[in-house]
């Protein structure tokens, strides 16, 4: 049973419909990419959830640290001039 711990983890991403991006749906264990794809098909697409699957070794993903959240994302909160509603356009100009 301990041998099973050698089975790497994979993150599973599914494209639900044509034109949409792949979206993370969960993870699973498999020894190689082909088996990970097969398992992802069985575990995550039993009801027509997708048209395409990506499996990515979990080890290959670098994630931002939640502790850095404020440093990374807070500065944008004050940059309201990046949004269209910051700019005044007279009503009689119409939609812009």
């Amino acid at each position: 049973m301990m041998a099973e711990q050698n089975m790497p983890l994979w993150e599973v991403f599914i494209r639900a419909r044509n034109g949409l991006a792949h979206k993370h749906v969960g993870s699973l264990h498999a020894v190689d990419a082909a088996m990970a794809l097969g398992a992802a098909r069985d575990v995550y697409t039993r009801r027509g959830e997708g048209l395409s699957i990506w499996v990515v070794p979990s080890r290959a993903i670098t994630a931002s640290d939640p502790a850095d959240k404020e440093m990374l994302f807070e500065p944008t909160a004050s940059k309201i001039y990046r949004h269209p509603t910051f700019y005044k356009v007279p009503d009689d100009v119409g939609n812009m």
Partner: peptide, 13 residues
């Protein structure tokens, strides 16, 4: 089955 899958994965690697 698990042992065979791991052996297969190691061989391919």
């Amino acid at each position: 089955v698990r042992e065979a899958a791991i052996a297969y994965g190691e061989k391919r690697a």
